[in-house]
């Protein structure tokens, strides 16, 4: 039972990162039907932006909380700038082109950003990330179930990010405009909504959340790596599809589901299909089962046919 609960905690921590990154995929897909494969790199850039802020911009001895806030801002600036540039110069010129064109472009942007960072940080990868939140500080969650401070932080910031985004989209004027654009872009324009601006907003919000996640990941693992965006990006995209791509709550649910399935598969899947080697296989088994019975994902709603 302890093992089960500890694994559940492990799964929630893993899922928090997936969910937070998945939000970026799902928002952009929901609004422009673009699978922005370079979103994983936006997450990576958030981590590197935070690292750069810490190592280059912050004077030694900056109080930890202030350093964390500034690192988050630094990460966001880098992530958001990259997202704005890719939207403007890579994707916008292709709007209205066949769907394959922006998809291939997204892959190209992804490789471009990875190599850019690799060349910018030419030393050995991965790069050590400052351990500002002590990983040996453990919080007990009942009988020998524990979570370390940076892992708890990962979950807390992820939940804050998710709630903030969901509130923004449901309550704010711009959030409503995002929903309208997702459901029917032409009609949204008839309401006076500048859909170009809304698309940019979706990229910016996704990048901001990815930056949060990139910083949390750096603190949790103590490294950042130009390749870290690829695997997380694939998993987060899977989470978005699992939850119902385009659906914000779905991305969150999909993220946690995926994290927990991976962890439980590592622990409990029967031999010889157990262990870390099979966790991804099990994750995709779950994805396929969900899509067989609910083709639009766990929370995906089939948007009423457009006239």
């Amino acid at each position: 039972m302890q093992t089960f609960l500890q694994q559940l905690v492990n799964g929630v921590v893993l899922g928090a990162t997936y969910g937070l990154v998945a939000l970026g995929y799902t928002m952009v897909y929901g609004i422009v039907q673009l699978i922005n494969f370079a979103h994983g790199e936006i997450y990576m850039l958030g981590g590197f932006g935070a690292l750069f802020t810490y190592t280059v911009l912050l004077p030694g001895g900056t109080p930890v909380v202030l350093a964390l806030v500034l690192m988050l801002l630094g990460g966001m600036v880098v992530s958001i700038t990259a997202a704005l540039l890719m939207e403007r110069f890579a994707y916008r010129p292709l709007r209205g082109a066949p769907r394959l064109a922006p998809l291939i472009t997204a892959l190209g942007v992804s490789i471009f950003l990875q190599e850019l960072v690799r060349n910018f940080y030419p030393a050995k990868s991965p790069r050590p990330f400052p351990q500002l939140v002590d990983p040996s500080h453990q919080f007990s969650l009942g009988a020998s179930v524990e979570i370390s401070a940076p892992r708890l932080l990962t979950v807390v910031v992820a939940v804050i990010g998710m709630v903030a985004l969901s509130t923004f989209v449901r309550r704010s004027r711009t959030g409503r405009a995002m929903q309208a654009t997702a459901q029917d872009p032409d009609t949204a324009r008839l309401m006076g909504i500048d859909t170009d601006r809304i698309i940019v907003t979706a990229f910016v919000l996704g990048a901001a959340l990815a930056a949060v996640s990139g910083l949390a990941s750096g603190l949790q693992f103590g490294t950042v790596d130009p390749r870290m965006g690829f695997l997380t990006g694939v998993k987060a995209f899977t989470a978005a599809v699992l939850g119902g791509i385009g659906n914000i709550s779905g991305a969150v649910l999909g993220g946690f589901t995926l994290g927990i399935v991976e962890v439980m598969a590592t622990q409990y899947a029967p031999d010889p299909f157990s262990g870390g080697a099979w966790k991804d296989a099990w994750a995709f088994v779950v994805l396929i089962l969900v899509l067989v019975f609910r083709p639009s994902g766990l929370l995906g709603e089939r948007v009423a046919a457009r006239a």
């Binding site: 929903q179 029917d184 309401m191 948007v303 457009r306």
Partner: peptide
């Protein structure tokens, strides 16, 4: 008011009306 009505199906009636006053 476009052909085929084109209301925003996943939003409430009230939210649809509020979007009409977006400007």
């Amino acid at each position: 008011s476009p052909e085929g009505r084109r209301i925003f199906p996943l939003m409430t009636v009230e939210e649809n009306l509020e979007l009409g006053a977006y400007t």
